[in-house]
């Protein structure tokens, strides 16, 4: 009745359970870092990616007076096709054997920055279309790379197109009454694999 063994066994059980729980938490934390896992270190990674992405757009979107920026030039000449990186070049989605690879200012800088650092990326373009007498945003994909991770970083740049820019047929003229052609929002989504 007054034996302390039961109390001792209970405490020992609690201690054992705590040790087991801590070991399990440690083991799970140590082994389950997948591309989709959020972690405290991702804050720094996200900040770095944000800066890198903005720098890419800053470089591409600079132009002297009366000149077209490299980024705008690429958007003007985009033919609506979606591309994917195959390990060496950006090939057409669903038609990898085609020789119509994407090779422009954007892919040149992506190849020398994000690809070299193993950073997964996709590029989307949102522009306005007239639908049922309303002007609404429409999003198309220029470079596809699957679903991004939870820690993906998005940087965007808005660019205004004019009638005089001779835009390829993919993007419509939303305002034929004036020289304004369309407004596009190009988004670069980046994440660490």
């Amino acid at each position: 009745m007054f034996d302390e063994k039961g109390q001792l066994h209970t405490l020992e059980g609690v201690a054992s359970a705590t040790i087991l729980l801590m070991v399990m938490i440690y083991a799970i934390d140590a082994t389950s870092m997948t591309p989709l896992t959020a972690s405290t270190s991702s804050l720094r990674v996200e900040s770095e990616l944000q800066t890198l992405g903005q720098d890419i757009f800053n470089v591409l979107d600079y132009s002297e007076a009366n000149y077209t920026s490299k980024l705008k030039y690429d958007i003007i000449n985009w033919n609506g096709t979606e591309y994917i990186y195959d390990g060496s070049k950006y090939v057409e989605v669903g038609n990898a054997t085609s020789q119509n690879n994407l090779n422009n200012n954007l892919t040149n800088i992506l190849s020398s920055t994000l690809v070299k650092q193993g950073i997964a990326h996709k590029v989307e373009l949102t522009y306005l279309i007239n639908s049922n007498n309303k002007t609404v945003p429409y999003t198309g994909s220029i470079i596809y790379a699957g679903a991004p991770s939870n820690n993906a970083v998005i940087v965007s740049r808005k660019i205004v197109l004019q009638d005089t820019d001779n835009v390829a047929a993919t993007i419509p003229d939303i305002d034929p009454s004036s020289n304004l052609f369309n407004i596009v929002d190009i988004r670069l989504v980046m994440w660490r694999m």
């Binding site: 306005l128 945003p137 305002d175 004036s178 304004l180 407004i183």
Partner: peptide, 17 residues
């Protein structure tokens, strides 16, 4: 003013996203 008005109204649709 017409072109700027069109710019302003369409730009707000992009930002609304």
């Amino acid at each position: 003013s017409n072109q700027m008005q069109n710019f302003s109204s369409n730009l707000s649709k992009i930002y609304a996203m």
